[in-house]
Design a protein around this nucleic acid. Sequence first.
DNA 1: AAGAGGCCCTGATAGC
DNA 2: TGCTATCAGGGCCTCT
Length: 287
Amino acid sequence: MPELPEVEIVRKSLSKNIKGKVITKVEVNNRNLRVKIEKKFEEKLKKKKIKKIDRFSKYIIIVFFDNSFCLIHLGMSGTIHLLKKKNKNKFTNTSFYHSPHLPKKHNHVEIELQNISLIYNDPRRFGYLLYFDNKKQLQKKFKSYGPEPFSKKFNLEYILKYFQNKHKNIKNFLLDQKFVSGLGNIYASEVLFESKIYPLKSASLLTNDQLKKIIKYSKKVLKRSIAKGGSSIRDFKNTTGDQGSFQKEFKVYNREHLKCTRRSCGGIIKKIIISNRSSFFCNICQK
DNA sequence: AAGAGGCCCTGATAGC
DNA sequence: TGCTATCAGGGCCTCT
């Protein structure tokens, strides 16, 4: 589910609710996530005090005061739920992302922080949690990742150099975290629409003007989505919580057969499959 | 060594 | 009602 904006919304919520707290208990119900949770995970996290919550790309980074780290990746279906302890033993649901109630199944990890309980839920188990002892390990993990769209490193020179001797369509490049990190399937389509670029266009054929548009709109689209609380799809039922609303502003994603939102374009949104993932685009204004 | 494709997994939905 | 097939916001691994 989560691309950069959604993860940033989770980060903000965690920062607000668990910064400064001490981990009092860790319970792993299922270690078999995308990456198996190490045996000593619980032991290593216990008694750690949270200095701050960072994010890189689609990763949440819990930073402890002793400069160790806990990394959380939400995969496709991961969600984090915060429960607040009301009386001595009972936790009640106060904050959550995407789902108004704590799911009954797939609550794989529970981390208690004094009066708050953090629950990692993930039906498909494509997400994972990692513990890092020091900053070196963290840097190693992100070594092969490209810059975020917000980074100054994501500039025209970088892109031109990166595309040298590579032959792929632009949609695949935007999904490639080694090139640029944080975009996923929704925002890749949205950025290409705003940039008026056809997703199957060979990246090496793009003009400098088009590349500048990609730089501009990748920042813009992500920022706008963050401001709107991210995108919530497939989890509509209730709206009591921190449900995002950017899905209402999708110009192409999930809009097959509908009209292009550009006035006087007259195009129709099409859906094609690129590398096994849906891509949406306007058949007239994206070239 | 770049790039295509398979695969990890569960759940929701569509079609019969 | 119940079966089967398809699809889903990610990304790693293997093969060519």
